[in-house]
Lab assay of single mutants.
Amino acid sequence: LKKVVALYDYMPMNANDLQLRKGDEYFILEESNLPWWRARDKNGQEGYIPSNYVTEAE
């Protein structure tokens, strides 16, 4: 899975979204639905995130 790091905080707009915290790492599960990607956080929560809020992890 592709790993990304959040560049900004993101508060979910609806139940399908995943909250982002700046500096945290996330795994990308699906990239087909631009600009929204399906992601999983370190706690196993899954949801959609804005792809322009993250960058690929080193």
Rank of each mutant, 00 (worst) to 15 (best):
L1W: 14
L1S: 06
L1H: 09
L1E: 06
L1K: 06
L1D: 05
L1N: 07
K2G: 04
K2T: 06
K2E: 03
K2V: 06
K2S: 04
K2H: 07
K3H: 06
K3E: 03
K3W: 09
K3F: 06
K3A: 05
V4K: 03
V4N: 01
V4Q: 02
V4S: 02
V4T: 03
V4W: 07
V5W: 11
V5R: 09
V5Y: 11
V5C: 06
V5F: 10
A6F: 01
A6W: 01
A6E: 00
A6N: 00
A6Q: 00
L7H: 04
L7V: 07
L7P: 01
L7E: 03
L7W: 03
L7S: 04
L7R: 06
L7A: 04
L7Y: 03
L7T: 05
Y8F: 13
Y8G: 04
Y8N: 06
Y8D: 06
Y8L: 09
Y8E: 07
Y8R: 13
Y8V: 07
D9Q: 03
D9A: 04
D9E: 05
D9R: 02
D9V: 02
D9H: 05
D9T: 05
D9C: 05
D9M: 03
Y10T: 03
Y10L: 06
Y10C: 04
Y10W: 14
Y10D: 01
Y10R: 08
Y10A: 03
Y10G: 01
Y10I: 03
M11F: 14
M11K: 12
M11S: 12
M11Q: 12
M11P: 06
M11R: 09
M11D: 11
M11W: 14
P12Q: 04
P12G: 06
P12S: 07
P12R: 05
P12A: 06
P12N: 03
M13E: 11
M13Q: 14
M13R: 14
M13C: 14
M13I: 14
M13N: 11
M13K: 12
N14F: 11
N14G: 12
N14Y: 12
N14S: 13
N14E: 07
A15L: 10
A15I: 12
A15W: 10
A15K: 13
N16F: 12
N16I: 08
N16L: 11
N16P: 04
N16Q: 13
D17R: 10
D17M: 15
D17A: 12
D17L: 13
D17G: 15
D17E: 15
D17F: 15
L18Y: 01
L18D: 00
L18M: 07
L18H: 01
L18R: 00
L18Q: 00
L18P: 01
Q19G: 10
Q19S: 09
Q19Y: 08
Q19L: 09
L20V: 04
L20N: 00
L20G: 01
L20Q: 00
L20F: 02
L20K: 00
L20P: 00
L20C: 02
L20Y: 01
L20M: 08
R21H: 13
R21K: 13
R21Q: 09
R21W: 13
K22M: 09
K22F: 05
K22L: 06
K22D: 02
K22R: 11
K22S: 07
K22W: 04
K22H: 06
K22I: 07
K22Q: 10
G23T: 02
G23N: 05
G23M: 03
G23Q: 03
G23L: 03
G23C: 07
G23D: 07
D24P: 01
D24A: 09
D24C: 13
D24F: 09
D24M: 10
D24I: 06
E25L: 14
E25D: 06
E25K: 07
E25W: 14
E25A: 09
Y26M: 02
Y26R: 00
Y26L: 07
Y26P: 00
Y26G: 01
F27I: 12
F27M: 09
F27K: 04
F27N: 04
F27T: 11
F27G: 03
I28N: 00
I28K: 02
I28P: 01
I28M: 03
I28E: 00
I28W: 01
I28A: 03
I28D: 00
I28L: 09
I28C: 03
I28S: 01
L29Y: 06
L29V: 10
L29N: 02
L29W: 05
L29I: 13
E30K: 06
E30C: 11
E30A: 08
E30I: 07
E30Y: 09
E30L: 07
E30G: 07
E30P: 03
E31H: 11
E31A: 12
E31W: 13
E31G: 08
E31Y: 12
E31N: 10
E31P: 07
S32D: 09
S32R: 07
S32W: 09
S32L: 10
S32A: 09
N33K: 12
N33L: 11
N33F: 09
N33M: 11
N33E: 14
N33G: 10
L34D: 15
L34N: 15
L34S: 15
L34C: 14
L34E: 15
P35E: 15
P35L: 15
P35V: 15
P35H: 15
P35M: 15
P35T: 15
P35Y: 15
P35Q: 15
W36R: 12
W36V: 10
W36F: 15
W36D: 04
W36G: 05
W36S: 07
W36C: 11
W37P: 06
W37S: 05
W37I: 13
W37E: 03
W37Y: 11
W37R: 05
W37H: 04
R38P: 06
R38K: 14
R38A: 05
R38C: 09
A39P: 00
A39G: 05
A39I: 06
A39W: 02
A39F: 02
R40C: 08
R40A: 06
R40D: 01
R40K: 08
R40H: 04
R40L: 08
D41M: 02
D41E: 03
D41G: 05
K42W: 07
K42H: 09
K42E: 08
K42C: 08
K42Y: 07
N43W: 14
N43A: 10
N43V: 07
N43M: 12
N43K: 09
N43Q: 10
N43C: 13
N43G: 08
G44S: 04
G44Q: 05
G44V: 01
Q45I: 11
Q45Y: 11
Q45A: 12
Q45N: 15
Q45F: 12
Q45W: 08
Q45G: 08
Q45E: 11
E46G: 02
E46M: 06
E46D: 05
E46T: 08
E46F: 04
E46Q: 06
G47C: 02
G47R: 01
G47E: 00
G47Q: 00
Y48M: 13
Y48P: 02
Y48C: 12
Y48D: 06
Y48F: 13
Y48W: 15
Y48L: 11
Y48E: 04
I49W: 01
I49S: 00
I49A: 02
I49C: 03
I49H: 01
P50Q: 06
P50Y: 10
P50L: 11
P50F: 09
P50C: 12
P50V: 04
P50R: 07
P50M: 09
S51M: 11
S51Y: 15
S51R: 13
N52G: 11
N52T: 12
N52Y: 11
N52W: 15
N52E: 12
N52P: 05
Y53E: 01
Y53T: 03
Y53A: 08
Y53S: 06
Y53N: 03
Y53M: 11
V54Q: 01
V54E: 01
V54S: 01
V54T: 05
V54R: 01
V54C: 04
V54Y: 02
V54I: 07
V54H: 01
T55Q: 12
T55D: 05
T55R: 14
T55M: 13
T55C: 12
T55V: 14
E56L: 14
E56F: 14
E56I: 13
E56H: 11
A57W: 13
A57E: 08
A57S: 12
A57L: 14
A57V: 15
A57Y: 12
E58A: 14
E58D: 13
E58R: 11
E58I: 14
E58T: 14
E58P: 14
E58L: 14
E58M: 13
E58N: 13
E58Q: 13
